[in-house]
Computed example of a mutant assay.
Amino acid sequence: MKIMLASVLMLLLTPALAQDVPQLDLPRTTLKAGMHLIQTQVASTPQQRAVGLMHRVDMPTNEGMLFVFEQPAVQCFWMKNTLLPLTAAFVQDDGTVVNLADMQPRSLDSHCSAKPVRYVLEMHQGWFAKRGIQKGFKLSGSPFASR
């Protein structure tokens, strides 16, 4: 009975414990923003999207995370347990940036897409601005090619 109870507790606690460390083993893809290459980790499952970039203390300059959802919807993000200041680009199926939101570390403030999207690309805060990328800019790469 004790072994069964311990097994059930481990199953229940595993997702919570997994959120205390950065996820580093996600699939990767390369996106293009004009002449700039972006190396992204792809978070496409509910668990991967829930953890996102939480607990990261650093990230390479041209790296980010692409959140992929099953269908377009208004997507909202917050920064609980996220240590890096980030900018979220809310992106349509064809790669067009709908809007951008600067997000502060460890904040519970909600940042939402201006209209339904399937993709959200998180990069270091200021990455998009330094490259002149704003609403209406079109990203390219394999996630957007088949739509």
Rank of each mutant, 00 (worst) to 15 (best):
L13C: 14
P143K: 04
V57R: 15
A16S: 13
A73I: 09
E70F: 03
Q23F: 05
L24I: 11
G95E: 01
V8I: 15
D94W: 00
R131C: 05
E63D: 13
L53I: 08
S142Q: 07
S140R: 04
V21G: 10
L86R: 03
V97T: 09
F67K: 02
Q71A: 15
L37W: 11
A16F: 12
T96I: 09
L108P: 13
A145N: 15
P116M: 08
V97E: 06
R131D: 05
S110C: 00
Q104D: 15
L5E: 11
L5M: 13
G64H: 05
P60A: 08
R118V: 05
N99T: 04
M4I: 14
L84K: 04
F144V: 11
R56E: 03
P27Y: 06
M54I: 00
R106M: 13
M65C: 10
L86I: 01
L26A: 14
L13G: 12
F69W: 06
H124S: 06
F67V: 03
D93N: 12
S140G: 11
N99H: 05
D20Q: 13
D25Q: 14
A43R: 02
F144L: 12
M35L: 09
R106P: 12
Q48W: 03
T14A: 15
V8R: 06
R56M: 00
E122K: 00
S113Q: 06
P27D: 10
